[in-house]
Design a protein around this nucleic acid. Structure first.
Lengths: 223, 223, 223, 223
DNA sequence: AATGAATGAGATTTCATTCAT
DNA sequence: CATGAATGAAATCTCATTCAT
């Protein structure tokens, strides 16, 4: 029962196009119906393969579920890695990460559903390789936050873990709401609000009344 | 799912002690095993009643799940309502709400599991009465935030919905992490970090706003 | 997975009549179709219960199979134990045991099929409690054989284990043939042939031992 | 099951080496796991061919199973036929047959497993050509037994079919025990015990009390 | 001749749920 | 009220087998 060599360790097995089609179908069906309610038969139908074929590519329904994030996250990370160096300043980088993060879910609503409503509640997902990538992606934030502290862009007494928790938590909260209620129609447009609030806090500016300076120019010259 | 005539509209039906025992058992078993994996039989065993008895009190497994939050949230709200008036200032109220919120999950880890890992992912929960209370509880935050804006404790350009999303998101993120990874051992001790970060932001040298200077030049020279 | 308390340790669970009906049906269907070919559905239909009910009484198809011999062997043993004391002489007892043994299978052809064609080839059966009874029943033979050796009914240099193997082997061979080919129509009628051959061997002119003759010569002649 | 035009009537089709390799692999895997549990995939892996290739040589899993005995029995028979004429006396021949029979299984434990635990319980096997050879091999015994009766080596009232059943039954019983329990480590060493018991029976020698003969010599001569 | 890839076809098993007592 | 007993209804997963290359 303890398979040293799991049946399908690499997803590239056999026909990768078909594997991708199955994954896409699974993503959609799971997003639509949830994990338990969705059936392999549904997914097979959508992917236009037989149920048995799905098992040629993924050894169980759960493995199929866990395989969904891999590709999408990989590409997401890749692009981040590519662009980040060109952005100057930790604050700008942070804003970029948030924007990308929200964009990821905005552009892939099925994926958002799967992650927020299904994967997040599944403790087994934590043991997954896909989860490793997620963790890795979390480190991006920490790096940028630390960079900002060294830079003097961010407060030196900032606690990166709390801040990251705030960012992720907020994003996940917003994405989940959108998944369930459809409410924040547009996620990426919230980037700035989120970023600014995070950056400047919510404390009222200590009443920055303008200072009035009266300058009286007296010309002592005799013209 | 929307039962016109729900079998047991009031949970107080029959023996309320037994209903509570069943709920407590359900909370524990669901927290332990997840919704699908948990069986009515498990819950019946834990509650020391027969499976059929559970159906005397709750009309379905899902209704049983959805019934879990009612009592605990009710008491939570009650206490909040009771204490809040005695706290001065919106900031202090906000800090209090955060502390209570974290405390709720910290003190009820089974409940935390059920909410974060099971209920949050179940779209049907939104149709529930129990969810109404949750929504109501969200309004507390909004009220306090608005109070703070009117007070001039919070910035006038603050967006309450975003801020509330940040608070809830962060809290849920932390609680979920604790549920899954056990990691932030102590949740309530994070209250201040969270609150301060939210309040003051992460920008270095905050309040570095330029001073507005009105220059009024009066020229007494005779031209 | 390692159930300390197997789901249905005692078959008497619930309605013993129903359990017996299921067993009888299973015996018949298994005998007819073999283990793999037979389906739970077949058995359920024959027993006039639902498939699920079968699983209320027996936790798996294999357990159901293994449960078949228990009752029948128990009664067989019981009767043997009851009668044996009234039979005089090891040879007679042995003949009786053989007769009973053949009779058991002759009177229960379905049971014979199940044992000879299915159970005998299933290594898991050896771990079964039912198998313990079978072993116990084997000891009957050994006892009687030993009794006969002490009695001087059987040769002192006889090897009980070989003889028992011969008896069991022959019986099983005959029963299997009957199960498969229907050939020895009547099994019990072979008791005597088997017993005699075993008893006297196949050597021609047995007991051809030289006769010892004491010659006592009395001479009445007058010398 | 009775294929009018069996796909591969002669096993020598194509590459006979490969056919033999597949058969050897099948023998091993079937012996190890049983018929149902063993998969074509297992066998293919062991034989280092693809699953499809197996179907080039054998038209079904069951045909593959049934093909296992052919070669081994053929050689066994061949050798028997070769040697038997050189053995004098039916008793010696019988002893030889028993010895060979036990030796066959002793030297081929996988084969023993397959025959005793799998083939014996499969009624379809009886329809097989391979089974014909087995039957033929049984006739050897009958011939020798009859020869012994004509010879006056064996009792004239002996019943060859019973005796053959005893021999086969005993052998199969012993082999099965060894397959399942590993118990009679060495099978061939039991040849003599088995033969002697069969030959001389188990009856104690009838207390050969010496016969007293009184000879009274009377001399009627007149001296 | 050999095989990689695809699938048809079911059977076992599990529970939530019901109902008669 | 409480429950023991019965079951309906599926869904996952497994392989033997086929076929195009």
């Amino acid at each position: 029962m303890t398979n040293a060599t799991p049946k399908n360790s690499q997803k590239n097995l056999k026909n990768p196009k078909k594997a991708a089609a199955i994954l896409k179908a699974a993503e959609h069906i799971f997003a639509q119906k949830g994990f338990q309610t969705a059936t392999i038969s549904d997914i097979a139908k959508k992917a236009k393969v037989s149920e048995a074929t799905i098992y040629e590519y993924f050894s169980s329904k759960e493995e199929l579920l866990f395989a969904i994030p891999a590709e999408i996250i990989h590409q997401y990370q890749e692009k981040n890695r590519e662009i980040l160096p060109y952005i100057h300043g930790a604050a700008n980088k942070l804003r970029f990460l948030i924007h990308r993060h929200l964009g990821l879910y905005q552009d892939n609503p099925d994926y958002a559903n799967v992650v927020m409503l299904i994967l997040k509640g599944n403790p087994n997902f934590l043991k997954t390789d896909a989860y490793k990538i997620v963790q890795y992606s979390a480190r991006n934030y920490i790096q940028v936050l630390k960079e900002g502290m060294e830079n003097n862009e961010f407060r030196p007494d900032m606690e990166p873990r709390i801040v990251r928790a705030m960012i992720w938590g907020t994003i996940e909260h917003l994405v989940t709401r959108k998944s369930l209620l459809g409410k924040p129609e547009n996620l990426t447009s919230l980037t700035d609000s989120l970023f600014e609030t995070l950056f400047d806090g919510i404390r009222a500016c200590p009443r920055q009344q303008p200072v009035n300076v009266n300058i009286h120019v007296t010309d002592s010259r005799q013209s």
